[in-house]
């Protein structure tokens, strides 16, 4: 187990390095010179040279990369051009909202997707299965903003049960403020839970045809135990590996959701930074997202190992 974990962690580090090279190169091929963005049209050649030297932009590109990567390793992601503040603290301001939103969303995805997918599979072919699968198809198909707007219309505007926008920090207003994230997280969870539901159902139906399920039935154990002990666990192998790319989908959908619900999160920050041409912030956010994504995938790999004893040999 530990050697496996170490190997996976090593592979993750290599991937992170490759990603950092791509992000750095990406910023450098974007047309335009940050010096002109900073100084404007009226700068003298003297000023330009001085600033270029101060920012280290006259150095060879390899040296620039090593400096940037070295600073990033110590947590220094540079300074935001718009906020005139360290990128790390700009991102940290949005992180609370985004982390809580992502966590709540994943909780919904697991709590809705897996049990309902299981029920649909156990009752497959019945009206219950058709209804659940149909609903899942619907939620996987409609755009995120549409679900968000309807949830606002029903639960915020009409019933008035929940707030429709914004998010005051739980560190100031207490855990009760999580209610601000209820509608956004449900919005974000809808398409992903629907996918997990369909995946759980399909995977369970596949596993149900396996020879070892027949063996389990032959032992005389009750049908529900056959589902729980033999079908579900094997079916979850497929589902767990899907959590990795569910998270990737979450990142892009979070941009829309945070905009619809006016949440001060990283998704909205990235959109605003692109509009402001705040390159250090964009670069920093991409790097942070890559890191989170890699960690999630590492955890998925380790969970997979715990669920499937065959992995170690491969």
């Amino acid at each position: 187990m530990w050697s496996y974990a170490l190997k996976r962690a090593g592979a993750t580090a290599v991937t992170l390095w490759a990603a950092s090279v791509i992000i750095f190169a990406f910023i450098h091929v974007i047309p335009g010179d940050p010096i002109y963005v900073l100084l404007g049209d009226t700068a003298t050649p003297d000023q330009i040279d001085r600033l270029r030297h101060e920012l280290g932009l006259d150095q060879p590109i390899v040296v620039q990369y090593l400096q940037w990567a070295g600073h990033a390793l110590t947590g220094d992601l540079g300074r935001s051009i718009f906020f005139q503040a360290p990128v790390a603290s700009v991102i940290a301001d949005g992180a609370e909202t985004s982390i809580l939103l992502a966590t709540m969303t994943m909780v919904w995805v697991v709590l809705i997707g897996v049990p309902i997918g299981t029920i649909a599979a156990v009752r497959h072919g019945t009206w219950l299965d058709q209804g659940l699968s149909g609903a899942a198809m619907f939620f996987a198909s409609v755009p995120t903003f549409w679900v968000g707007l309807y949830l606002i219309l029903i639960f915020a505007a009409t019933l008035g049960w929940l707030p429709s926008s914004g998010y005051p920090s739980i560190f100031e207003g207490g855990l009760g403020n999580l209610r601000y994230l209820l509608l956004p997280s449900l919005t974000l969870a809808a398409p992903n839970a629907a996918l997990i539901l369909r995946l759980t159902r399909a995977s369970m139906l596949d596993v149900a045809r396996e020879d070892y399920v027949r063996t389990a039935r032959a032992k005389g154990i009750r049908p529900w135990q056959v589902v729980r002990r033999h079908i579900l666990r094997n079916a979850l192998l497929t589902v767990v590996s899907a959590f990795g790319f569910t998270f990737a989908a979450l990142m892009s959908e979070a941009v829309v959701t945070e905009t619809v619900f006016a949440l001060p999160g990283i998704g909205r920050l990235v959109v605003q930074s692109i509009l402001r041409r705040d390159y250090p912030v964009i670069q920093g956010i991409i790097l942070v997202i890559v890191v989170i994504y890699l960690i999630i995938n590492l955890l998925v790999d380790l969970a997979y190992r715990l669920l499937d004893p065959r992995v170690e040999l491969q």
Partner: peptide, 23 residues
């Protein structure tokens, strides 16, 4: 009953002991 395919007739993610003990 025992079956034709011993390679696929046992649950791959559960220990032998558990699979016998279950019966």
């Amino acid at each position: 009953m025992i079956f034709q395919e011993p390679m696929t007739s046992l649950n791959p993610v559960r220990r032998i002991g558990d699979q016998i003990a279950e019966a």
